[in-house]
Write a protein that binds this DNA or RNA. Structure first.
Lengths: 205, 205
DNA sequence: TGGAAAACATGACGGTCAGCATGTAAGTTC
DNA sequence: GAACTTACATGCTGACCGTCATGTTTTCCA
């Protein structure tokens, strides 16, 4: 951790800025969007309300910045779990596992909070949509890179099915659904996906 | 609509109570959980804050009651769309459509709001869990009744996969994702499910 | 080395929130 | 029809919210 002695202005700025954004994410995960107040955020970040005022003109702007911060973090995490995979395309099942770990972590929990909040907040929604779409495309690329050679149309279908299923499962997990059943469902889906993969490569219907 | 003249006490009570609960649901759908205040609710219900105070000791209790109100409404809606189906088991695809319409309406939007809020609110969570589990079981029964004769284990698997996929799709819909793609994904999933159904009946792996 | 500028802290303001005390009207009971 | 209970309305209170005006510290530059 960088010391507090003799930091350049850019360093100071960047440091408290990321501290604020990280604190915002923590807040979303811990207390939810409804109770994510500026006071709570800067309490966790260890700065004053004046600081957040200096960096972001309004709370909405902070949230918009948090969205970007979140997606870059998610992308980084995705890349990291990609590196951990055994080399070479390890198939559809591995790709699905990848997506599940990506969509079931704390970062995605924060994303879900923002998503649901954005439904009734046009400003936040406008901030989220492009970033999320970009993340989706990037993830699709990374995943197809792992999944092996599928017909691109079929791969995209499988990807979006998996993403939406995973999001649903993540929601279930958030509310303390049965983890065993989730595991079972995911395994079943992997079986199905592999089966479909064979269909698509050996003989398209 | 019942007139306001000469209502019995029980009628008065029930009337404003449901008015409050309906207003709560409207509020959740329109402005989201974060901005669902007691004032806003009783403004929509056309009653005063004293009324909600009289019926529910605290806001949390109102929300808990709203959860029950919601699930009973959902159950009613499910039964209604069941009646609209052509008689006899119309297969897996019809069952999936049924689930999709159930999970993509405004009622489910409200449920999602409460769900996400409940993640960080133990009290609300405790109120939701049992009711939601009961709804899940009831829905499973109704759906299997439509889906035709599947091995019960297989049917339950398909059911939960569909539910979670549908919830993910509903989330996507809430944020203004591409409706065409959602339709496409749902059709694809129906194709897959029917395929699996054949597998399960003709020859289990 | 001293002044300008950026980064941050402090305190206050208007507004809204949930909860409560108290008052009023409608229905019930005798 | 009068006492009584229930259903609801009104108005207040303390707390918290986001925002802003103003002061203080830190870095930068000449």
């Amino acid at each position: 951790m960088t010391s507090t002695a003799h930091r350049t202005q850019a360093q100071r700025r960047e440091q408290t800025r990321t501290a604020l954004l990280d604190a915002t994410i923590d807040c979303l995960v811990d207390v939810g969007y409804a109770r994510t107040s500026v006071q709570e955020i800067c309490a966790r970040a260890g700065v004053s309300k004046g600081a957040v005022q200096h960096h972001f003109t309004a709370k909405a702007e902070l949230m918009a910045a948090a969205v970007e911060h979140l997606t870059t973090k998610l992308r980084r995490q995705l890349a990291a779990s990609l590196d951990e995979l055994p080399s070479g395309g390890t198939g559809v099942a591995a790709a699905i596992d990848l997506l599940w770990t990506g969509y079931s972590g704390t970062l995605s929990t924060a994303v879900t909070e923002l998503w649901v909040a954005a439904r009734t907040d046009p400003e936040l929604r406008a901030a989220i949509r492009p970033v999320d779409r970009a993340l989706g495309r990037a993830t699709l690329e990374h995943v197809t890179q792992v999944a092996g050679e599928l017909p691109p149309e079929r791969a995209e279908m499988l990807f979006w099915l998996t993403v939406n299923l995973t999001r649903g499962l993540a929601l279930d997990a958030e509310l303390g659904g049965d983890p065993h059943r989730r595991r079972q469902l995911l395994e079943e889906w992997k079986r199905i996906a592999v089966l479909l993969y064979q269909d698509a490569t050996t003989g398209p219907s």
